[in-house]
Amino acid sequence: MSIKPNTVVSLTYELHTTNEEGQQVFVEKTDKENPLVFLYGTGMMLPKFEEHLAGLKVGDSYGFELSAADGYGEIDPGAFADLPVDMFKEAGLPAVGDVIPLQDNQGNHFRAGVTAIHEDVVNVDLNHPMAGKDLIFAGEILAVREATQEELAHGHAHGADGHSGH
């Protein structure tokens, strides 16, 4: 069976980006014991990531690069904020490089990277950590199966075998 909409895909991947010198930098990987399992074609994954996997079968290897625009987007210069130091009285001040959880007025949760700490404010970057970076993927397709009706109704995979997750 090949990868197409409404199939559950299990795969390994290794993800790299490139640094300013053009050298590949390792980000993360999955393996056969802990594969990435997802419902293909439902918008759970980056659209261009899925596009590159279309039609592949069990045992196929793949490798491709996504531009920043096709990944998590370019860095948005408007996605930086200054938070008052008073916000951190209870939890304590974070350190530069920390990723902190935040919540907006509508109750949406998101994360921000701390870029600087000053006397009155903490500067944070609200961009996705992978924004502005090209993504280089390589891996192997481990399994492809039809999604169950329950998975389709829920909009996500219930594990490689269709019975995990809930």
Rank of each mutant, 00 (worst) to 15 (best):
E51P: 11
D82S: 12
F49L: 11
A91L: 12
G71E: 04
G71D: 11
A68T: 07
A95K: 15
S67G: 13
E20T: 04
V25W: 00
L102D: 08
I75Y: 01
F38S: 08
T42R: 11
L46P: 03
L53D: 02
N19V: 04
G41N: 02
L53F: 12
G97T: 01
F64M: 04
F80E: 11
A54R: 14
F26V: 02
G63C: 12
L66Y: 07
K89I: 09
G41M: 04
K48F: 02
E65H: 04
T30W: 06
L39K: 00
L93T: 10
A69C: 04
A81F: 05
S61F: 13
V27Q: 09
L56E: 05
A54Y: 14
V27S: 01
P101G: 14
V25I: 12
M44K: 04
A95E: 15
K57Y: 10
F80S: 05
E21I: 00
I75R: 05
Q24C: 00
D86N: 12
A81P: 01
D86V: 14
L93S: 13
D86L: 13
K29I: 00
L102R: 07
F64W: 02
Q23A: 13
F26D: 08
L102F: 07
L56V: 02
T42Y: 13
Y72V: 09
M45G: 03
V85K: 14
V58K: 15
Y72M: 11
S67F: 12
Q103L: 07
E50I: 05
I75L: 08
T30I: 02
A95D: 14
Y40S: 07
F80I: 10
G92T: 05
N34H: 09
K32T: 13
S67H: 08
V58H: 06
L36P: 00
P77H: 08
D98T: 06
L39A: 01
A68H: 13
E21A: 14
V99W: 08
P84L: 11
P94M: 05
G71N: 04
V96S: 06
Q23S: 10
G92I: 02
P84M: 10
N19R: 01
